[in-house]
Design a protein around this nucleic acid. Structure first.
Length: 260
DNA sequence: CCTGGAACCTGGTAGC
DNA sequence: TGCTACCAGGTTCCAG
C-alpha cells in the first residue's frame, strides 16, 4: 500500500452502501473524491491513510476483508466489492469483504483521536514495549484465563485466536491458567513465543482460515500450525490427542500433557 | 473494576 | 437432493 497508494489522488469513488461492521456512509465515501493519500500506516489491525484535507481513511479488514488493486488476478469485480476508488494513476483500489466484518471510515482529526476503535489500544506485540515484565505486570491480580487476556486488545494488540493457541503451546502454558498465577520467567518465555509466532506468520504470508480463501494468494502459515485446528490429532511433541475447549466463546486448542 | 457472553455477518459444512 | 443448524473470525457492548 505504501508503494502503490501513497501520493495517489482519488478521482472517483463508489460504494454499494451495504453495512460492514458499522454502516458504510455513501457520503463519506463520495467525499474521498479529490483527496490525495499522504501516507499508509498501521496501528493494531487498523490501516490508517492520512489524506490531504487532514482527515484519515480508517480501514479494518475484519476476518475476510481485503484491499486489492483491480488488476491481474483481481481484475474481475466480485459480488463482495463494497468500495471502489478510482485513482489518478494505476488500477482502481477495491475494498472487498464477503462477511462484512470490516470497517471503512473517513474520520476528521478529532474524530480519529476520539475514535472508539483506536482509543485504549494495547501495546504492539512486536515492539520493545511488549516484554515479559510488561505482561507479568498486566496480569497481576487477574483471574481470567491467560488465553482470554492475550486476546484482549486493551493489553496487547495483534494476537488473534489462532496465534494465542499457537504461542501458548510454544510456551507450554495451558490456556486456562489464571493469568495472575504465571511466573515472570514463564511470561518472558510466552512473550518470546508470541513474537516468534507472529513473525513467522508474517514471513509466510499469514494464515488463511480453514478452506476460506480470498482473492489472490492465501497465507501459508496454516501449514505451520502446531495445535490450532488439530483437535484429536497427535501432539507434535508427545503424540497425545490435542484438546479443543471453548474459552469465552472461542475455540482453544492445547495439549493436556505438554501444557501446564 | 472485572469477567464472560452476545452481537455483528455470510459461506462452508455437518447432519438430517 | 435440499433443507437447517452451526461455526469461524475481531471487536464492542452489555449484564452480572
Amino acid at each position: 500500500m505504501a508503494a502503490h497508494l501513497v501520493g495517489r489522488r482519488v478521482t472517483d469513488a463508489w460504494t454499494d452502501g451495504l453495512r460492514l461492521r458499522e454502516p458504510l456512509s455513501r457520503t463519506a465515501v463520495r467525499s474521498l473524491v479529490g483527496e490525495r493519500i499522504e501516507a499508509a500506516r498501521r496501528r493494531a489491525k487498523f490501516l490508517l491513510f492520512p489524506l490531504t484535507s487532514g482527515r484519515t481513511l480508517l480501514v479494518h479488514l475484519g476476518m475476510t476483508g481485503n484491499l486489492v488493486f483491480r488488476t491481474g488476478q483481481n481484475a474481475e469485480p466480485t459480488a463482495h466489492d463494497h468500495v471502489l476508488l478510482d485513482l489518478d494513476q494505476g488500477p482502481p483500489l477495491v475494498y472487498t469483504d464477503p462477511r462484512r466484518f470490516g470497517l471503512f471510515k473517513v474520520l476528521t482529526a478529532t474524530g480519529l483521536a476520539r475514535s472508539k476503535w483506536l482509543r485504549n489500544l494495547g501495546v504492539e506485540p512486536l515492539s520493545d514495549d511488549f516484554d515479559g515484565n510488561f505482561l507479568h505486570t498486566a496480569c497481576e491480580g487477574r483471574s481470567r484465563p491467560i488465553k482470554n487476556l492475550l486476546l484482549d486488545g486493551h493489553i496487547v494488540v495483534g494476537v488473534g485466536n489462532i496465534y494465542a493457541s499457537e504461542a501458548l503451546f510454544g510456551a507450554r502454558i495451558r490456556p486456562t491458567t489464571p493469568a495472575g498465577r504465571i511466573s515472570r520467567p514463564r511470561m518472558v518465555r510466552l512473550v518470546a513465543e508470541i513474537k516468534a509466532v507472529l513473525q513467522r506468520s508474517i514471513d509466510h504470508g499469514g494464515t488463511t482460515i480453514n478452506d476460506y480463501l480470498g482473492s489472490g494468494e492465501g497465507g501459508y502459515f496454516q501449514q505451520e500450525l502446531t495445535v490450532y485446528g488439530r483437535a484429536g490429532e497427535g501432539c507434535l511433541v508427545c503424540d497425545k490427542p490435542i484438546t479443543n475447549k471453548v474459552l469465552s466463546g472461542r475455540s482453544t486448542f492445547y495439549c493436556t500433557t505438554c501444557q501446564h
